Amino acid sequence: MNDAQHPFFRPLWRRIAVVVFCAAWSIFEFSTGTPLWGTLAGGMAVYAAWIFLLNYKPPAGPTEGQPPSEKE
């Protein structure tokens, strides 16, 4: 997650989906009896929540699909 400011992560639903996926994967790993992988996936979920939800600052510039505003 070196490029957290990538335009792909601009929509909130994508950032939430990444966090939920990592958390669900952690639960899956713990439920199948592999606590090491569950801990790693849980750590990724916590890190993703920190980067994508708590500290996220959208990149500057126009959003995808919108033309840049013209100055008069």
Results as ranks from 00 to 15, higher is better:
69 S>P: 10
70 E>F: 09
45 A>E: 02
54 L>N: 03
46 V>E: 01
11 P>D: 13
71 K>I: 07
32 T>A: 01
51 I>M: 07
63 T>H: 11
25 W>A: 12
17 A>K: 10
10 R>M: 05
23 A>K: 03
30 F>D: 01
47 Y>K: 13
46 V>Y: 02
44 M>T: 07
15 R>C: 09
10 R>V: 15
16 I>S: 02
6 H>V: 01
69 S>Y: 12
65 G>F: 09
57 K>L: 07
23 A>C: 07
60 A>W: 04
16 I>K: 05
16 I>A: 09
4 A>I: 04
64 E>F: 12
12 L>K: 14
52 F>L: 15
39 T>V: 10
69 S>K: 14
44 M>W: 12
49 A>V: 01
37 W>M: 12
62 P>L: 08
7 P>W: 09
31 S>M: 13
12 L>C: 04
25 W>H: 08
28 F>R: 14
39 T>F: 14
10 R>F: 03
66 Q>K: 15
46 V>D: 01
48 A>T: 07
13 W>E: 15
70 E>Q: 13
57 K>G: 01
70 E>C: 06
5 Q>N: 15
36 L>H: 09
45 A>H: 00
21 F>R: 05
13 W>T: 06
70 E>K: 14
29 E>S: 15
18 V>T: 07
32 T>K: 13
50 W>C: 03
2 N>H: 08
38 G>T: 08
65 G>P: 06
47 Y>I: 09
59 P>D: 04
65 G>Q: 08
13 W>Q: 13
3 D>N: 12
20 V>D: 03
60 A>E: 14
27 I>Y: 04
38 G>C: 09
46 V>Q: 00
3 D>P: 01
17 A>F: 09
68 P>S: 13
17 A>C: 08
4 A>R: 00
15 R>I: 12
18 V>H: 02
1 M>W: 08
43 G>R: 10
2 N>E: 13
55 N>I: 02
61 G>E: 06
4 A>H: 01
17 A>T: 06
63 T>K: 15
54 L>P: 00
29 E>T: 04
35 P>E: 11
62 P>I: 08
51 I>T: 13
10 R>A: 05
52 F>C: 02
66 Q>L: 14
4 A>Y: 00
32 T>N: 05
37 W>R: 00
49 A>R: 00
43 G>I: 12
61 G>W: 08
27 I>H: 01
67 P>F: 07
33 G>H: 07
3 D>E: 10
4 A>P: 01
28 F>H: 15
70 E>N: 08
61 G>M: 08
21 F>I: 04
38 G>I: 07
16 I>L: 15
14 R>N: 12
17 A>Y: 09
41 A>Y: 05
45 A>L: 03
21 F>C: 07
12 L>P: 00
31 S>N: 13
39 T>N: 05
22 C>F: 08
10 R>W: 03
50 W>R: 05
16 I>G: 00
24 A>L: 15
17 A>L: 12
44 M>Y: 10
60 A>Q: 12
68 P>G: 10
66 Q>R: 14
47 Y>W: 13
54 L>R: 12
15 R>S: 08
18 V>L: 04
72 E>K: 14
32 T>Q: 13
65 G>H: 09
42 G>H: 03
47 Y>Q: 12
25 W>Q: 06
45 A>W: 02
